[in-house]
Nucleic acid binder design. Structure first.
Lengths: 233, 233
DNA sequence: AAAGATATAAAGTACGTACTTAATCAAGGG
DNA sequence: CCCTTGATTAAGTACGTACTTTATATCTTT
């Protein structure tokens, strides 16, 4: 009776990864085929496949049918960020969350918004400006456009009470999401809303969502000075 | 002879996802066990498992052993970013890459750097300041500390010719990486190096890496005005 | 030599089965 | 009543097999 040792895919992954780390396989190198690795390490091919997918997901290797597996020649840092709804973010850092509607109204989308959605022509959408507060102080200012054709129900929502952020995230799942991060100098308007000095450097997160090809919403979330976004560990 | 229809895990995932999108299962709801879904949709449990893992990875659902599968009550936007080495980034936007060493020297880590690594006491490390150029103009300024104990070989690298960025990424794989993004106002020093006006808002990416528990390097990469980081689609 | 057809290699997928792990619940004992 | 112990449940994993997909390479034909 041979003691049948079973190998977890994590072990297999670690052993392959270790070979990359120690230079057995260097960037650009081709790895043996799954089947050979399976034979060598004494496990099933499907276990190697599982390990390889993990390494592939993390950006360590690249796999192509027929082409085989290669150590990524051109390493990237692949990072995963979780952006929670603002209320949760505030509450998780132990602060009291607050919300204020600044203004809402229906208008034609300006060129910049039309472009973000990839639309040909301007559309009539709902614009909502609101402030999220932490411990009574400004935390994030959001400037949002919501597509009324895709989300007509938003008209029935009392945006004085419930933030568009939360209503949308709970009621309008999306199938596509574009995100972009950058820095801006606080305009006098930003400064007034966020109660800071004009000219401060502010971190901005922009998010645009669609369901299928239909636009849902685009938000520019302007954070207060000192805000940092961290990777999810 | 029954025509045996085979179902791809992506189909299965889409059908489950569709039920979340259309409100059949709403946030917080418990989904049937994998086996029941498999029976209902006419596929193997392992196919459901594959579909579920994908939905779980994307943050749509949460799974717990014995606890079952639930639609995430508290939706997050989960984004994946690929941060390439700077040379590649410049070349990919069609510009000519350039690199200049500004200064290098050995020094005690200041409190902020010591803290980033989670060290108890300051350590002696190599500090490298350098500029990445795109089409002869400043693109990213990096201020880096490299742990000499973990990476003694760095001493033999000619940092006038090869950027620490590239040498490290090709020669020193890491097992842990912390990332943080934020905005700063350009100091007079930043402004001089990047050839911009002091007080500009700049987007900053900070990255700290370890191998096991040993620190490798920490970089503060200060981008030029207008820089945007986009999700990988 | 260029273009197209065919073969082939390697990853990807699907399924069934059996076993493992972790969380939860219930029963029993102090 | 609390704590421990054991049973149960559902996800997670491992494996073998068979089939599919997609690049790549080779061969044929014009």
């Amino acid at each position: 009776m041979t003691a049948v040792t079973r190998h977890s895919w994590k072990d297999i992954r670690n052993r392959i990864h270790a070979r990359i780390l120690d230079g057995t396989y260097t960037p650009g190198d081709k790895l043996p085929r799954d089947e050979d690795i399976a034979g060598e390490l004494g496990c099933a091919r499907s276990t190697v496949q599982r390990a390889m997918r993990d390494l592939s997901d993390s950006g360590t290797i690249e796999r192509r049918r027929k082409g085989g597996t290669h150590v990524r020649a051109d390493p990237v840092t692949r990072a995963i960020f979780d952006i929670p709804i603002t209320r949760r973010e505030v509450e998780q850092k132990g602060s009291v969350y607050g919300y204020q509607l600044i203004s809402q109204g229906i208008a034609q989308t300006p060129r910049s918004v039309t472009a973000k959605f990839g639309l040909q022509a301007p559309a009539t959408m709902l614009r909502v400006q609101a402030l999220h507060l932490a411990d009574q102080g400004p935390f994030i200012y959001e400037d949002r456009w919501v597509c009324l054709q895709t989300v007509p129900e938003i008209s029935n929502v009392d945006l004085e009470r419930e933030s568009a952020n939360e209503w949308l995230v709970r009621n309008k799942p999306y199938s596509r999401c574009d995100l972009r991060f950058y820095a801006i100098k606080a305009s006098s308007h930003d400064a007034r809303v966020l109660e800071i000095a004009p000219g401060e450097a502010l971190f901005v997160m922009e998010r645009t969502t669609w369901i299928g090809t239909k636009p849902i919403t685009t938000v520019k979330a302007v954070t207060t000075p000192g805000y940092q976004l961290l990777t999810q560990i």
